[in-house]
C-alpha cells in the first residue's frame, strides 16, 4: 500500500499542478474540492498527509484542520496548510488550528516537495 496524499483545494488549476507533482513522486493522490468533501475523504481514505487550502467554500481549511484534530481516531493525519493569505494572523490561526506545517501561495514546487517528503519520512 502506497502513501496516500489528499489534495483539498477549490482552484482546479492548482489541483492540476499539485496532483502532477505528487504523482510524479509516486504517491497515491486523492482530490477534494471543498472542506466538507475533504473531511469526508480524510475519514474514508485515512490519507497520511493532507495538503489543505485555507480558503475554500463551505467548510474552510482551518475548519477542516480543527475537525481532524478534534477526532482522536484521525491522530496520525499530517496536515500541511496552503493559503494565499500570507498575513501573520493567518499563520497563527493555521498553527492554532493544529496544522503541522504552513506554506504560503504561490509556493516553490521544489520547497513544497521537500516539505512533503520530510513530513512523510
Amino acid at each position: 500500500m502506497g502513501i496516500k496524499v489528499l489534495i483539498a483545494d477549490d482552484e482546479p488549476n492548482i489541483v492540476v499542478s499539485l496532483e502532477f507533482m505528487l504523482k510524479r513522486e509516486g504517491y497515491e493522490v486523492i482530490v477534494a474540492r471543498d472542506g466538507n468533501e475533504a473531511l469526508e475523504a480524510i475519514r474514508r481514505e485515512r490519507p497520511n498527509l493532507v495538503l489543505l487550502d485555507g480558503m475554500m467554500p463551505g467548510l474552510s481549511g482551518f475548519g477542516v484542520c480543527e475537525a481532524v484534530r478534534a477526532d482522536l481516531s484521525l491522530g496520525g493525519t499530517r496536515i500541511l496548510m496552503l493559503t494565499a493569505k500570507g498575513r501573520e494572523a493567518d499563520v497563527a490561526r493555521g498553527v492554532g488550528a493544529g496544522a503541522d506545517a504552513y506554506v504560503i501561495k504561490p509556493f516553490s514546487t521544489r520547497d513544497l516537495m521537500q516539505q512533503v517528503r520530510d513530513m512523510l519520512a
Binding site: E11, S17, G86, F107
Partner: peptide, 20 residues
C-alpha cells in the same frame, strides 16, 4: 486582502506549473 488572495491564486498555478 481580497486582492492579494485573488492575485496569488493564478500566480500559484503559473509558478507551480512552470516549475514543474
Amino acid at each position: 486582502s481580497s486582492v492579494t488572495h485573488e492575485l496569488r491564486t493564478p500566480l500559484t498555478s503559473i509558478r507551480a506549473l512552470t516549475e514543474l
